[in-house]
Nucleic acid binder design. Sequence first.
DNA 1: CACGCGTGGTA
DNA 2: TTACCAAGCGT
Length: 347
Amino acid sequence: MNYPYVAEFRRALVEWFESEKRDLPWRHTKDPYKIWVSEVMLQQTRVDTVIPYYNRFMESFPTLELLAEAPQEYLLKHWEGLGYYSRARNLQAGVREVLENYGGIVPDNRHEISKLKGVGPYTAGAILSIAYNKPEHAVDGNVMRVLSRVLEIHEDIALPKTKKIFEAAVEELIDPEHTSSFNQGLMELGALICTPTSPKCLLCPVREYCKAFNGGEPEKLPVKSKKVKMKHLSYDVFVCEDTEGRILMEQRPEKGLLANMWQFPMIEHDEEATLTTQAIFEANYHVHVNKQQELMKFKHVFSHLTWQLNSYHLQSEPSQCGHWFTREQIEMLPMPVPMLKIWETLK
DNA sequence: CACGCGTGGTA
DNA sequence: TTACCAAGCGT
């Protein structure tokens, strides 16, 4: 790699991290299970968002055994609002693998830990370096941004193959005596100093060893291509309440978007089209509707698509078909954010 | 490899 | 408002 300041870079980064690191809940433990949970929650998710979820999760599932035994609906309720719900199912599957195949001890080597569901190259390296002090790379978006600037790497970080370049770089740079602080230091630097826009170079502990800073244009890095094409879908959503106060719910399929989450019945219609007729709803869900009133209309944006939701409150006769719940029971069901919005409005 | 998979914050 | 993100992984 031909980077002349390895020793100085390590020392400056580790010392900065030790003195400036944020006080975060998962930094009070070296329990590999807890580090694992924190790393999964942090995937594509902001620190401030994760903190309350992590704390609540550890109150309910302080050990790997308790998580392994949890009913999936109870687990998903703890993940409700955090997004990427397959992370929760994969985490539980991974924990069960550890109990079955490794005697309840999280593996301390990349080969075995990488076999666990939901543990990819980044998460493996993070657990190994933070919990076990192993000199393993943990390359995420922060690390690629920081090192693209420090080393002036112009490869497109949106391309999967580019990550190999950064993993190789970390393998050379990593401080073998302080693997945890080194890896976390790179990420903390990316989060606090070496930010995507307007990096705070004058506060950076490694600016003297940064090629982009010395070259003058750290904001031009990293190079990142790739645009996302959005799909738009429109639905009518029906909060159908019978004369006994029970409300009709449905569970989403076990694969795909919002898998296994609960929702009020939804019927898709093409853009700008008329609302679903009461007759169509009655036919689809086998209920007799007495009254219908508009609830709220709003847009919900996912990473790769948007929903236009028009919601209605229906009064119906009791029915034997479908899943009907009391208001108290609905509070226990894991629901995605757009359904929670409708629910909060109705209450 | 490209794409599917949530949500809330920010320029 | 649109765009782009923020500690990725599975398929």
